[in-house]
Amino acid sequence: MTTMLYKRIVQAVKGLRLRSGCPKTNGIGRSHIAPEMNPSESFLEQEEEEDSKWSNLPPELLLDIIQRVEADQIDWPSRRDVIVCASVCKSWRECTMETVQTPEHSGSITFPISLMQPAPRGTPIQCFIKRDRATSTYRLYLGLTPAMSSRTSKLLLAAKRSKRATRTDFLISLSGHDFSSKSNKLVGKLKSNFLGTKFAICESQQVSSSSKKKKKLQPARVSMSKVGNISYELNIIQSRGPRRMKCAFDKIPMSAIKEGGIAPTPTKFQCPDTGSELEEPLVLRNKSPRWHEQLQCWCLNFKGRVTVASVKNFQLVASPEPYQDISDEEQDRVILQFGKMGKDFFSMDYCYPLSAYQAFAICLSSFDTKPVCE
């Protein structure tokens, strides 16, 4: 009886989503958007009546429904049902947000804020990046490979490369097509220096307006706050070897990679940054490859996730100071790996304490031209 009631409620909730004109995703990064409508008063009254009906469910029954949906729908696109539950009404949204765990504990990416939260410990979240040379855009999808994920891949983030006179910018957005600096979908930016050897990872932050006029609603200004740095070592004498890089994150402590260590886990977007820089921030370096005599090339063990040799391929591990007491096992653990799988397709696997956004920003830096580093 309980199972039948659960199924009927879930089907009814899905019906609410379809009637409300929510976008229906079909294929990689494509959405079919329903046109805007001017509903009649009777339709509005019907919606209000339905919302009231759903919001008045007993808390115990509501919690049971959300927990079942969250447990059953683990992978995308079926996990969209969890988002549907959060969009029914305020009580459903609050219950869903309390039930769904962060990627660190669940291993799943559910809400957009999950992209700014650390990945699980030990088990990497596997993604791939698709490069579009014609439009200079890079799209990050959740999945093993384009072939295996097929049309079920979930678009996580997208970036657009913008060349300026003295630097290159990568605008990072939740949308695959909206990269406007005034858009609320813009989550951050990657900025380079003139040579393409140093990069700053920035996150968007809302700055509340100080205007005292209450009659006019003024849009909140968006500023960029630096959260990390990436640097590539110069190779002026053109010695043999891959690129050498280092990454430092101002808000993640080095102790986060230890067992029981804690990394910041934001709960909402665009919060003003009130914290100060850490005395011992997390520093990552690329893992040194070994020279293979038979193949006559530098090699790393990507465990089958990289199939094409490229100067862009890398693995990042922790680079602590001797006094920081980090074990050899923790220093050897790969936190982020990136490599070429085919023409314009690259794998990206990341672990705790990095988030999808931070890992994506690091990988984007590898696409910029670096003649003085190779």
Rank of each mutant, 00 (worst) to 15 (best):
L5M: 13
Y6P: 01
A12N: 14
R19K: 10
S20Q: 13
C22H: 15
G27C: 08
I28Q: 15
S31P: 01
S31A: 11
H32S: 15
A34M: 14
E36Y: 11
S40Y: 06
F43R: 14
F43Y: 14
K53M: 12
L61P: 08
D64L: 05
I66V: 12
Q67D: 04
Q67C: 10
P77S: 05
S78V: 12
D81R: 07
V82F: 06
C85T: 05
V88N: 00
R93F: 09
R93K: 09
E94F: 06
E94Y: 11
M97G: 08
E98M: 13
T99V: 01
P103L: 02
H105F: 13
S106I: 04
T110D: 04
P118M: 01
F128T: 02
T135N: 07
T137Y: 09
Y138C: 12
R139I: 05
L142W: 04
A147T: 09
S153N: 05
S162V: 12
S162I: 15
K163C: 12
F170W: 02
F170A: 02
S173W: 03
G176E: 08
D178R: 02
K182I: 13
L186M: 05
L186S: 06
N193Q: 00
F194E: 10
S204R: 08
S225M: 14
N229S: 13
N229G: 12
Y232K: 00
I237M: 14
R240T: 14
P242E: 03
M245V: 14
K246H: 15
F249T: 02
D250A: 11
G260N: 10
G261H: 01
T267A: 10
E277G: 10
E279N: 15
E279K: 09
P281E: 01
V283G: 03
L284Y: 01
R290V: 11
R290A: 11
W291S: 04
K303F: 15
K303Q: 13
S310R: 00
N313F: 01
N313Y: 04
N313K: 06
F314Y: 10
Q324Y: 05
D325G: 12
D328G: 09
D328Y: 15
D332A: 14
D332F: 08
D344G: 04
S347R: 06
Y350V: 05
C351T: 10
Y357A: 04
P371R: 01
P371S: 01
V372N: 11
